[in-house]
Simulated assay, not measured.
Amino acid sequence: MRSILLLLHLSGVIVWIGGMFFAQFCLRPVAASQLPPPQRLPLLAAVLGRFFTAVALSIVAILGSGFASMAATGLPRRRCIGM
């Protein structure tokens, strides 16, 4: 179970960070050099709209697998000093 949670967690991070790298360093420069602004804006809006949907699912996967992994290994207990 732990390996599945780790795979889910890392997959979410890879989609999120890899997608940001692609959009910033691959898509944007090529779109800026090849397309005029009236065509560039709809393209980037459509691509980023789909990307943010994938990122939202990735964040859910990251948080869910992280909390499930913490729950499986035991949540750390908070100690209050002086109480």
Rank of each mutant, 00 (worst) to 15 (best):
P42S: 02
L43Q: 07
P38L: 07
R78Q: 07
F25I: 03
S33F: 10
V55M: 07
L48A: 04
L75S: 12
I59Q: 11
F21K: 08
M20D: 04
P37G: 03
I14H: 08
S33V: 09
R40W: 03
S58R: 02
S3R: 15
L48N: 13
S33N: 13
C26T: 10
S69V: 01
V30E: 12
S65A: 11
M20V: 08
I14Y: 08
G74C: 07
T53W: 13
A71V: 01
R28H: 12
P37A: 11
A23S: 14
F52C: 00
V30F: 15
G19I: 13
S58L: 03
L27W: 13
L43V: 14
G82I: 07
F52S: 02
M83P: 00
H9E: 10
V47M: 15
F21T: 07
G66S: 07
L43E: 07
F25Q: 06
W16Y: 13
L57W: 10
S3T: 10
A72F: 06
G74D: 04
L43Y: 10
F21V: 14
V30L: 15
V55A: 08
R79P: 00
I62F: 05
L63C: 09
L10V: 08
G49P: 02
P36G: 03
G82W: 13
M1A: 14
M20W: 15
P36F: 05
F51K: 11
Q34R: 14
R78V: 11
V60R: 03
Q34L: 15
G18C: 11
A72G: 09
S69M: 15
L41V: 09
S65M: 02
A45P: 00
R28S: 10
L57P: 00
P37C: 05
F22P: 00
W16R: 04
L5T: 05
H9K: 14
L44G: 01
P37R: 12
S69P: 00
H9Y: 14
G19L: 09
G18P: 08
S33P: 02
M1N: 04
A71I: 02
L8V: 13
R40E: 07
G49Q: 12
G18M: 10
A32E: 09
V60S: 05
F52N: 09
I17C: 04
L35V: 04
Q39L: 15
V47R: 12
L10K: 09
S3M: 06
P76C: 04
R50A: 06
I4R: 15
M70R: 13
G74M: 09
G12R: 04
R78G: 00
S33E: 15
L44E: 12
P29N: 05
L8I: 14
P36W: 03
A46K: 15
P36T: 09
A56C: 07
G12E: 06
A23C: 08
P36V: 06
G64H: 02
G12P: 03
T73C: 01
S11C: 10
P38K: 11
V47I: 14
P42N: 04
L63H: 04
L5N: 04
C26N: 13
L57S: 01
I81M: 03
A31W: 09
I81G: 02
R40K: 09
A54W: 12
R2A: 08
M20R: 12
V13H: 11
P36M: 03
Q34E: 14
P37Y: 11
C80Y: 14
L63F: 10
A32H: 05
R50W: 13
